[in-house]
Simulated assay, not measured.
Amino acid sequence: MTHQQEVIATIHDHQGLVQALGYSQVKTLFVMNGDLMSLADTIATIHKAQRRVFLHVDFIQGLATDAKGLEYVAQRLKPNGIITTRSQVVQLAKKHGLITVQRLFLIDTGGLQAGIKNLRHSQPDAVEVMPGVIPRVIRELRQSLTLPLIVGGLIHQREEIQMAFDAGADAVSLSGFQCWYQQ
């Protein structure tokens, strides 16, 4: 993941996939769910459109996020990377050459401090922070981490996207990505 401002399409269903692929500006898609029977086709469609795809492996039906499960993801499904909330999954995925995005849910100051410590230990390639509508915390994370910083969750308006970028986010992930690209 590069340090540049990007809006990432978060995909929950086939309709969202079709919409995301209809926007040439969407370069990265986060596939949030699915099952082992259909994911290979979904990933192939995304790659054929020359876009990056990351799977949220915690939500894939039929997938165990153990060593063999991540080996299957890397060798058979072949996404560009994975998203997870779990440090041990980050470490397994990295062993298989996958780019890793670790999600961090912020609920209080203690959670923020523990999250920073956890990220320094697991060393994902990027971190996705939720919710993404807290500019002060985005600035604090930007100062504390050198990882690419993705923010998401509860973002619905162009102004909120711009606030996140202004606070130091490298990317914003959202289901309603159309608000960024439509005039």
Rank of each mutant, 00 (worst) to 15 (best):
V26T: 02
D58H: 08
G132L: 05
G111S: 14
G132H: 06
L55S: 04
P79V: 07
D166Y: 07
A9P: 12
Q4T: 13
G152W: 11
L21A: 02
D66P: 10
V53T: 13
P131W: 07
D166H: 14
E71W: 08
R86Y: 15
P135T: 04
A164I: 04
E159W: 09
S175F: 00
A9W: 10
V53Q: 11
I161E: 01
R142N: 12
A126D: 08
K27A: 08
I116D: 09
M1R: 05
L149T: 00
F59Y: 14
I99H: 13
D13Q: 12
R142L: 09
I116C: 10
Q61L: 12
L147A: 03
A67K: 15
P124W: 00
K27D: 00
I11P: 13
D108I: 00
G153T: 07
L106A: 06
M163R: 14
P131F: 07
A171Q: 12
L39R: 07
D66W: 04
H3W: 05
F105V: 10
R142G: 07
A49G: 08
A169K: 02
G16Q: 03
H12G: 06
L21N: 01
D66Y: 05
R86C: 01
L112K: 11
A169I: 01
R139I: 01
N33W: 00
L147W: 04
I8P: 08
L39N: 08
Y72W: 15
L55I: 07
V90K: 12
G153Q: 12
Q61R: 14
I99F: 13
P135C: 06
S38Y: 08
